[in-house]
Design a protein around this nucleic acid. Structure first.
Lengths: 216, 216
DNA sequence: CCGGTTTCGATACCGGGTCCGAAAACCTCC
DNA sequence: GGAGGTTTTCGGACCCGGTATCGAAACCGG
């Protein structure tokens, strides 16, 4: 057990095949496809993991070696963008005050998100229970974003990530982003750019914390 | 099925016994006590619902007729205060601008919370997984608070609850409150008043939205 | 005493998630 | 070309939370 076994997605990097061992079947994409098909056919709740694994032609356990939980499948469309956040934060302009730099990074990230990538759970044909599960599975992601933002703010404001102000700001900003993105996703087909929705939601929060975090 | 069966806590009001029928055993408090004991003895994760029901001297199904889920037990110390929020919002001074009135209501609510009422999941002896489950179970509560605040803000600002600004504000404020309360609960025994922690976290967010929501 | 009503509880079922052990498929080194 | 070593896969079993069903228990009014 060389790796501490990350709880969320124990899936190892497909590229990190160093030495010998049984070759990893390209099951991940197959599983995603099978799941997406089944969700479209019969909905999320009615689809069992056995069915997904069976259609993908793998065993049930293999599923859990690629995904930590069934609900991870609900986030397939959003996770890639979320994973870009740390890099985007690191690349944020250093000459701007913290809150402005954060706004720029979030705007940039949102504008990179594929316009048509919407989680299945937000489709009209999914039940309320599925939306609930989607949100519950979103919690660890929320916490990850919040942590990343807190560290960023601590770094650039000269405070610590444990500072109540930093923590409150990170939480409020993350919630605003999530709300903006959620509204955008739920809007009809005539929705504008995601970045605009995020900006609109986040700007007031950043404004409220500006005087505290842009001190120096 | 006269009642739409609220998913969260289907427990009927203990006072609404109108007509005949088998008398409701006073199992709720007994179940809470049994659960608290077992959690202290062996932790949350290691305690099964069968054990709780058995110690309380009731059947397993009876548990689910009083609690919607095992994780509801983690919120026994916080739920009573949360349930007071709507009343507190309704009683908020009408002569203040929306954000100030909201601040007052939240402060008042926090100051009413018993100083020693802390969710078990936040004790040092509970595992990370339990804290995770606590947070996941907190999500519906978060959404309820967010909705209540959104309605309040919509009401007093002349906007609608569907307004993206109102939604973002409600989400950000709720997240700030939750963070403040969480930090307070996790602070050592030398923690100050909850209301102070909440005020500190919420004030900047309210400030950021003030110019938008206090228009008229 | 007799329906009517409500709660209780036993049983069964479902499905997500974990664990274990063995077989399969590759590697490298001898 | 084997002989280890390593990693993945897979079957099977298990645990537990949550739901549904159905009959029995405990009260009411008449």
């Amino acid at each position: 057990m060389p790796v501490p076994k990350a709880p969320g997605t124990p899936a190892p990097n497909a590229s990190s095949r160093n030495v010998g061992g049984r070759p990893r079947r390209s099951s991940r994409a197959t599983l995603e496809d099978a799941a997406s098909e089944l969700f479209l056919e019969q909905g999320y709740a009615a689809t069992t993991i056995d069915q997904i694994a069976q259609r993908a032609g793998v065993g049930r356990n293999t599923f859990f070696s690629y995904f930590g939980a069934k609900s991870d499948l609900l986030w397939l469309d959003a996770d890639p963008t979320l994973e870009l956040l740390p890099a985007e934060l690191a690349a944020a302009p250093a000459d701007l005050p913290p809150t402005a730099a954060l706004a720029a990074a979030l705007h940039e990230l949102a504008s990179r998100h594929p316009h048509s990538a919407l989680p299945i759970a937000l489709s009209q044909r999914e039940s309320m229970a599925t939306l609930d599960e989607f949100l519950r599975a979103g919690l660890p992601r929320f916490l990850a974003v919040r942590s990343a933002i807190a560290e960023f703010l601590a770094d650039r404001s000269g405070r610590t990530a444990a500072d109540p102000i930093v923590r409150a700001a990170a939480a409020a900003i993350t919630a605003a982003v999530a709300t903006g993105a959620g509204d955008w996703a739920l809007a009809g087909s005539e929705r504008g750019p995601l970045a605009d929705a995020v900006d609109l939601a986040v700007a007031p929060v950043l404004g409220g914390f500006a005087s505290l975090l842009n001190a120096r």
